[in-house]
Amino acid sequence: MIRKLKKPVSITILLAIAIVSLLPLYWVFSTAFQLPSYQNEEMDRPVSYVESAPPKLYPVGITEYISQWQKKREAERAGDLEQAEVHGELMTEVREKSFGAFNRLFTRTPVMKWLFNSLYIAVLTTAIIVLIDTMAGYVLAKKDFPGKWIIFWVIISTMMIPEQVTLVPTFIIVQELQLFDTHWALILPNLALAFGVFLMRQFLLSIPDELIEAAKIDGASEWKIFYKIILPLARPAMATLGIFTFVLVWNAFLWPIIVINDVDLMTLPAGLKTLQDANLADFKFLMAGATVAAVPIIIFFLIFQRYFIKGLTMGGVKE
């Protein structure tokens, strides 16, 4: 009874909080499409809706385009072709100016390169990490060999160490290996992360030993056991590790701004920083860049959201 009464109240509160928390993302998109320096037939000077006080809460181009379209139709009906053409031109102007920042972004900045770099680095790193962590996790969960516990604990104990501690030495190592300003500098250090080994080992502990023993009796080679038995069974944990690694690499910022100087080699977060450094006050342009960076990861999240939730709760439950 009490629960039934309370439900609408809590939904209302939650909706309010959700609106507040999603507002910044909405504001990115809204500003990116906002109409800048625009003047229609009723205005005496151009107005920028990007920089207006009070701020416009939605892209004005949408309503302005519709109203110009209506005016054009009215003029056509009245037979005033000259006036209809004026409105037609304003419609084009509204459209071009609303999307203008994206045009400039795609033609004058390497944003497509950043997008591509981010994508392929994230995919490649994720693929390698999932493979090598599953291999390591399998052995640490199911095999008994000298040094196993030392190796396990040394790897696990680095999970708590903040990234900043290894920043300087890793930088020196990357320079010594002549990897500075290459994508290897972004890919290789991530392969050392301990989290995945821990996750895969914990998951694979639950696989019954009998399965592996049975395969061994059937004469399956070690590689075949891994390939035919372990990999299929480990799939849920691999998916979880994969999506979290993907997001981690995709959003990495501190390390990429240190080891990549060449603008064409940057990933999206680092690229956005150079974009902001060069256009500090052009917020429509900056938000257009932010939109290009935000949309792929939002789509990725919406597709895989189940796994995010599963993975988070998997990490919380220990042993």
């Binding site: 504001w27 910022f253 999206l268 956005l272 999240f301 959201q305 995010f308």
Partner: peptide, 28 residues
């Protein structure tokens, strides 16, 4: 609601910082 509240967490902090700088703008 889980998705709505988790979405800002997946979005890069760089993007969030950029838009908050804009939201904190003195005049606009």
């Amino acid at each position: 609601f889980r998705s709505a509240f988790y979405l800002p967490t997946v979005t890069s902090m760089v993007i969030i910082a950029m838009v908050w700088r804009w939201m904190y703008n003195y005049r606009f």
